[in-house]
Design a binder for these strands. Sequence first.
RNA 1: GCGAAAGUGGCGGAAUUGGCAGACGCGCCAGACUUAGGAUCUGGUACCGAAAGGUGUGGGGGUUCGAGUCCCCCCUUUCGCACCA
Length: 848
Amino acid sequence: MDEKYFPEKIEQKWQQHWEQTKAFAASEDDERPKFYCLEMLPYPSGFLHMGHVRNYSIGDALAWYKRLQGFNVLHPIGWDSFGQPAEQAAIKRGVNPRDWTEENIAHMRGQLKRLGISYDWSREIAAHRPDYYKWDQWFFLKMYERGLAYKKKSPVNWCPRESTVLSNEQSSGGVCWRCGAEVEKRDLEQWFVRITEYAEQLVEDIKQIDSGWPEKVLKRQRDWVGRSEGAYIDFAVKDSDRKIRVFTTRIDTVFGATAIVLSAEHPLIDELLPASALKNQVMAFAAKVISERAARTRVADEEVEKEGINTGALAINPFSGETIPVWVANYVLIEYGTGAVMSVPAHDERDFEFAQKYSLAVRRVIERISHDQESIPHDATSEDQSIAMQHAFTDEGILVNSGDWSGKLSQDAVREMARYAERHGFGQAAVTYRIRDWGVSRQRFWGAPIPIVYCENCGMVAVPEKDLPVRLPDRAEFTGSGESPLAGVPDFVNTTCPKCNRPARRDTDTMDTFVDSSWYFFRYCDPRNEAAPFDPALAKRWTPVDQYIGGDSHAVMHLIYTRFWTKFMRDLGLVSFDEPVKKLLTQGMVTNRIEGTDDWKAMSKSLGNGVDPDEMIQVFGADAARLFILFAAPVENELRWSETGIEGAVRFLRRLYTMVWRWHERLSSGKATTATDDSSEDARALRRKTHQTIAKVTSDFDALHLNTIVAALMELFNELSAFDAEPGTASNSDVFAVREALESLVVMLAPFSPHAAEEMWEGLGHQKGLLSAHWPQADSELAKREELEIPIQVNGKLRSRVLVSPDVTEAELRAAALNDEKIRAFIYGHEVVKVIVVPQRLVNIVIR
RNA sequence: GCGAAAGUGGCGGAAUUGGCAGACGCGCCAGACUUAGGAUCUGGUACCGAAAGGUGUGGGGGUUCGAGUCCCCCCUUUCGCACCA
């Protein structure tokens, strides 16, 4: 140990030590309980940013904490190394995506090591390596075998800036998740994965994780899956054998239906009408709506005016027998439900608006339940009601004007009417979902090739498992044209059919990179397996993930895909649980001021407000950078970067280090000290603070309140600084108290600033390193106060305090309060109405 | 528009079940040591007031002996969704 704190020297020393001793390698031959601590794997853009540093600092703190608590910790890292930026670099600068990616990984690996994150590097994986993406392809084939991967032509989301298809999740809000460009619709033949097959489970299984995941993430997932209970109803088309099926969640309002409205894309439009001028108009209107929708660029807060056209066809309400017109309108979506709705203007805002515009009838069939006996709902004429209505009445209530159903409550009617429809063969109760199948084809080079070939004889043929991986070629032309660059590589495209051996062509699209990240943390359990994605027995040893940490930007992308993928792997028999992640922490963004303004935005190169982690490490040290990042804000909050804040962290480490240096000779001499009965009051106070701190830090760690842990460590340090003892002259019991405080402090600091902690641990005379240390145990007896200072209030205002022993009785405390000199002055001349005594806490005297 | 979360010093933020508001840090102020200080150390720092004391957790009301915390209304901010039938 040096006299002065030199972060650079210390950090290098311990990083080498950890590397040489393989300190953080997780072993399966370990009886201790396991803990799987996982951070979202990074894209190797070339440089770590502060968001990464925060993410990994949080994870590393937890990994260290669990290790010190005696867990067998798996803490791995890898690279989400397929994807767009590598291809952009290839297009712009002509570099090879593989070389570019490997260089970036090498650089970022170095940065992670300089940060001293305690990863098990022997398990490092990278998605772009054939030994990894082979298994992406393998999973794809398993899905294909089971009909869960299929190809179809459909309108898909197209990012014009990146020239590729995106999934619905990646174009949420109508913009590309990565570049923010407005997404267009294009009709393309694409591979889809049937995530809708698991829609029900994706909602249902939330029950299993709702105590460990943030509510806001679960809510977004629930909304995204969009489970909706309702019913189908078939409306017969008059003078035709066609039926129009609608979906509604409010079958109780069916007597209020005054039109059927089809989406412009509805297949029945063409068949409803005989050739006529009207039909031409209707078809032209539908075409117009479709093309407008495709061309529309989203503008915030834009509401599209509702437009429609009466087709002239009529439909028959199976409940009432009433004949109502069939319209086509732009506000009905083909993607949801059946692409057709029954329009109930009185009880749906959108239908109401539409009815107002086109003067459609408004018929009220639900009344508010009134507790007023005078106004028992009664059937009234529709004229009375439409005049009175300014808005749709969308609440549930009691049915009126609904034939035999009048008088029923909505919630009963919803159930019974669906049953009735089913019995009579014109409908049924049904559940629909908003989530759509996951489009996984990408017109890209830098991804896992889709393992399918097309043969003129045999058609679409899966690549046999033994021929995996289908390897990416070394190079391709990067034109940015929109077609997959693989299509321009004859050696790749031209192959032979696995079935008939005749010439065939490969699929030239690659998979969405979210496929890679859907199962990567299972691969960490068995990263070099050549025969399977992983050995189920090894996966069972480590998974599910105990704590997952990452940004909430993936709430409906990665996090929904990986839940789906896990369920699929369960159905393959690879894992035996439904949910891959027990606890999820979504950490806040790291922001910095945009120069010259008061705007705090996420650090980014383009905004020029980035902070280079390497520079931070160089100037302040990794330990201080990590300590500050965890101290500056609660983990889930936004973190505003501050240069002076990090200096505070350095100061703390330096002071603590200096303190250890002061005592290190005395404490490392090997002379044993024991707690003795002759402890001074100050020494007892120091020990009390030590044990109080241990208790607080331990419980805060379990709640991941890392910022208050650092504050508590600083408090303990401040108390220790004020403790009046000199190493040369201190008594045995004083030395014992100091040793206990310092050792506890150093061990509890390890999760935040591990290099400095190791150095100080050594300085305190420990040869074996922190990994063989144990998390300190709080002794609640020692933590107990010897004296309590009880606040005394008069009429709720603080007026005095009294010192009492902790085991004082209520009566004694009451007496002490009333006898206090200041209090007597306050209550003199008043009547004491009441005295509230809260044991151990406070006394409030109510006077008049 | 709908939904959710949140509003505490100059700043980041602390405050079991309702029980001493402002822990800890940054910044700022004063002092010490210094040729020097953007180093270090010591002390101070919610607001008003010379003090006694008073006022204070977005605003207004309520429950309670007692409210940052619970209830009602309003305002603001952030995030999510955006015709999902």
